[in-house]
Amino acid sequence: MNKLIVSPSPHTHGRESTQSIMRDVLIALTPAMVVSVLASGWSALILIVVGVAACILTEFLIQKYLLKTPVTVCDLSAAVTGCLLALNLPPNAPWWLIVIGSVVAIGIAKMTFGGLGQNIFNPALVGRVFLLVSFPVLMTSWSDAGSMFGIVDAFSGATPLGAVKEGLANGLTLSQITADDLTFSQEFFFNAGGSAGELSAIALILGFIYLLCRRVIKATIPVTILCTVFVISGIFWLADPEHYTNPVFNLFSGGLLLGAIFMATDYVTSPMTTLGQIIFGIGIGLITVFVRYFGSYPEGVSFAILIMNCAVPLLNKYCKPHRFGEVKK
């Protein structure tokens, strides 16, 4: 017989590990990645591969040679960051762009805070916003989606949100702008031209359902964000449908679904209690709508999430779970 093992209870542990959770997130992102590759061809695939590789490599090099701590790239969290970053860039972005984004995301947003679990801001979003303000032209020239494995460098256009913003700025009304091409059904399944991950709402929702079934995330944050966006934009739209886009368009355009499902629910940078998560979601929804309607950028999800990330420690401190035996007031 071996020497007996002795340890405090519990003596058994659940099957979930950091790695299995991250693997589930990657699986949930697969439909969106597939759509992205189908829509934009090899350039999207290259972007994803390079993004994942760059993130993993950055984390590996920093842990191995700079911090000299155990290397933890096997937990797949860097791979998730790489995927999310790739899905946040235009599919035809050059490969070096995502390398820079990855270095910023992992090197600055994650490792400087102490690695996994310690960062305040979502690394992929920090990478994205860094690229957005550093390379505005590259980051906002989108290939027109819809060309299955088509030749990608054919045409550059604006995202639906970008088109709306530009049109409004030029004094047009919405009915004039949207006369051309925006229809809801198209957006829902495929065609809302935008960054790689913004293409298909249905693919993202599939991922969402998978995460819910695997109990990786709870629906609280995404649902609160989407409801807030729907309600707030609905109020504006009812007040003036000629200047404010309709709520359904707001839900399915831009990075809202990607952000709400995959970025805002990042464990590390979201609140731990349901009440905190609801406040967090409402905050993101409000900021998103306001940036879209009144900001200078056409899309505000990234900024909304990053801004609300700052509030997370405070939300964790003040939103306590319901303690056992506590009398409800």
Binding site: N2, K3, L4, I5, V6, S7, P8
Partner: peptide, 22 residues
């Protein structure tokens, strides 16, 4: 000689409160 293997958190305090030792 060690007579058993401790597999809990590496702290004498935790270990001492659990049992007599390894």
């Amino acid at each position: 000689p060690r007579t058993n293997e401790y597999d809990g958190y590496a702290s004498c305090k935790v270990m001492a409160s659990l049992y007599a030792g390894d």
